[in-house]
Amino acid sequence: MVSMSISDDLDSLREQFPECSAIAFADLSARMVLVTSSRKILRQEALDALCAEASLLFEGAGGSSALSVTGDSADTAVTATPDGITLFLRATNEPADLLCLLCSPEVDTARLLAAARPSLDRISSGEVA
């Protein structure tokens, strides 16, 4: 049986979406990117910024999202610029596990999210290492 690494999983996900230039798996509690799959090398400052942005979106200054209307903790967040969008996903069972996806505006977000969620949950559950 061929075992799949986290890198393989992220590479496979990114290859399905040409509009997705980079994917990072991060630990939100440590604010640290652990693995990346990217067409170009991402600088450490950019990785740190991704974690900080995710932290701000999901946890805000007071521990809950500034955009919450229900008080529940969110599992998806997005920021959009004229050049692209960044999608953030938290794992279902381990909210500290985070996937960050950097994409061009043309990306099919519904299809990407549908593919990214199982990938994140596989990584988070230790199914791939």
């Binding site: 950019a46 910024a49 900080a52 942005e53 701000l56 979106l57 999901f58 200054a61 999202s65 500034a66 955009l67 919450s68 529940d72 969110a74 599992d75 998806t76 967040a77 997005v78 920021t79 959009a80 610029t81 004229p82 050049d83 692209g84 960044t86 996903l89 999210l113 969620r117």
Partner: peptide, 21 residues
């Protein structure tokens, strides 16, 4: 404002979304 502070030098994000999927 917080995101702008993080994104120094990067394109400014003027749309932020959060919720459940």
């Amino acid at each position: 404002v917080g995101i702008s502070g993080i994104r120094r030098g990067l394109p400014e994000a003027r749309l932020a979304i959060c919720g459940h999927s």
